[in-house]
Design a protein around this nucleic acid. Structure first.
Lengths: 358, 358
DNA sequence: CTGAAAGCGCTTACAG
DNA sequence: CTGAAAGCGCTTACAG
């Protein structure tokens, strides 16, 4: 066997176990393994994909040849021939946002357990990029697809709707999904925070976002807040600019606090679009000696671990991010396997964690 | 044209622009587009991949057919036939760590600009998983590959070394790479912090890591610290346990501070393995009224934005993470294009940002 | 500028 | 349990 292996890879000087994988035109092929083991290619294919279907003797010879030649099956050829891939594309707006990363972890975990691989694409919050990405990714003939959000360009929606594969849109609930949906209601989350702030006596409330034009889920939280407060408290919206691709947003919160206090000194509470901004504001308050919540209350959204470590602890809304990922992937896998999931639209809900900051 | 298109997709009831993409056995193929446009398949291929090589008239007819049928090219078939893919695998230990995410952003940015796509794999800090992942990913016959770190199982190293494609190992410098390398010296980073702490008069120094068994780059920083302090200051290593997959590590730093002060009250400085832990310790100190740096100095590693927002500001070592990603991708693309990069081993360095916490 | 033929590296049926 | 033939959906040469 070793003899044959060496012959097959003549350019390899003193090859022992060190394999020679020649990729592109030139990689070790199934046919070469078959020749090495003295069997037909289809038998090698079976030995690899369904070992039980091949006799022990042949399987052993084939395994040796695979080892000796350093054979790595060409997945594209396999996928093309079988019309089956185990790679599932996942489209998210950004990796710079911890929230998506945690959802992705939940997805990855679930997919991996079933032998699927994740192909990650990031749009940079741009719907045109999303459309292009969706097209490219569909070109890999995936068995299903996961996309963040329910809002897309019309062509993206049309493309996915007619792709003939299961699709899960994850993050928020709301409008009708292309196919399936897992998430939470950001409108209700905003309303929940409104209720909390009202209950604690705040009546002049500012909502502070970062590049809200891109972040429509934050806008939904604002909408929920505004509607719930209507007639009961005053609301102001602040849309902060900020470096694109900025990780976190602490700096934005840090910068915002003194400016907003100067512009609107009568405000008694600030609901930030996310915990990073809220933490940045808390840190600024700490440095400048601004009393929280005495001078002004501060709340965030997401429920990041750091929220419970600040002084005072940050009031925030905890979203079950990893669960969203797991449920979305599970729903998709069920449909890929031909099973009908328990539900095609899942609202995972949220919880409000009240801290000392409000 | 529309007439023919409709004929080709007979199952499609009242198809106007809404395409019908039938994937797997059944997707619209290049051949169907060719039939629709009344040309040979190869002409459609050219019209798509090299529009200039086809006459305006034909190109126009083909574009219409593509549009009408909702044709999405099958990338696997294309890649198999041309032995060329534009998908580049990137292997990292974790996405839960901001540091890798930022490197990934740099990579993605650079790859995307050249029309390449990233296939992300995460190992969960497990080298056996890394080996499996590398094998699978090579099966997609990529033109090159990016892998975090210089330490792998022997089989992974052998596999990649003989894959016959350019490989960049990124994050740290040190031992000889499989092919190319971009990163910084974590040993020198540890030594730099040692020098800083010595200069500020600290002589009893603790290094605090989280699951150091997995995080060998943190161990390298500790080694640099220890060696540089040898004979000049006392050093103690604390290896904290912590939930796997924990995002951040603030909780670990929060928990560690009081415990370490109780166990080793004579310590005068703590160098944490990363900024998250250090920030957690700072927040704990804030809550418990522990004077930083009066009672004990605190330093971190990474240079996250939050480091400059704490009170006192956190002393840390800033790693150019996005640059690492950009340089690694650029180096790889150069080699894929047949150009020799300026260098095959790049040390991007680091800077020490001294804050009030030391 | 356009096309007929062969082939990329596998797997699916169909036979034995 | 094993194999010969055909084909997955494209692109590469080679011709005109």
């Amino acid at each position: 066997m070793a003899e044959r292996a060496r012959t097959a890879t003549a350019t390899d000087a003193a090859a022992a176990p060190p394999r020679r994988i020649r990729r592109g035109r030139g990689a070790v092929t199934l046919a070469e393994v078959a020749a090495g083991a003295g069997v037909a290619p289809i038998t090698v294919s079976r030995a690899i994909n369904n070992p039980a279907s091949v006799s022990d003797a042949l399987r052993h010879r084939i395994e040796q040849a695979v080892e000796a030649l350093g054979y790595v099956p060409n997945r594209m050829a396999g996928a093309l021939a079988s019309a089956r891939t185990r790679v599932i594309p996942v489209i998210v707006p950004s990796l710079a946002n911890v929230v998506f990363v945690e959802v992705i972890e939940g997805i990855q975990e679930t997919l991996e357990a079933e032998g699927y691989q994740m192909l990650l694409g990031s749009t940079g919050y741009d719907l045109a990029t999303e459309a292009a990405l969706a097209t490219t990714l569909l070109g890999w003939a995936p068995p299903g697809m996961l996309v963040a959000g329910l809002r897309h360009e019309a062509r993206t929606t049309a493309l996915l709707r007619h792709a003939g594969i299961p699709i899960v849109e994850f993050m928020e609930t709301g409008r009708a999904p292309i196919d399936m949906n897992v998430g939470l209601s950001h409108v209700r989350a905003g309303a929940a925070m409104a209720e909390h702030l009202l209950a604690r006596g705040y009546r002049r409330i500012g909502f502070v976002g970062l590049r809200l034009h891109d972040d429509y889920r934050a806008r939904q939280r604002y909408d929920g807040l505004r509607r719930h407060l209507a007639g009961r408290a005053a609301v102001i919206l602040f849309d902060r600019a900020g470096a694109a691709g900025q990780v976190g947003g602490q700096q934005a919160g840090w910068d915002a606090l003194p400016e907003l206090l100067a512009i609107a000194p009568a405000l008694d509470a600030l609901f930030f679009a996310n915990d990073e901004m809220a933490v940045g504001a808390l840190l600024r308050a700490r440095r400048d000696g601004i009393d929280i919540p005495g001078r002004i209350a501060i709340a965030g959204f997401n429920g990041l671990p750091i929220a419970s470590l600040t002084t005072p602890a940050l009031t925030t809304i905890v979203s079950p991010r990893k669960q969203i990922g797991r449920e979305a992937a599970a729903m998709l896998l069920a449909r890929i396997a031909g099973r009908e999931p328990t539900t095609r639209r899942l609202d995972v809900g949220f919880t409000l964690a009240a801290g000392g900051s409000t």
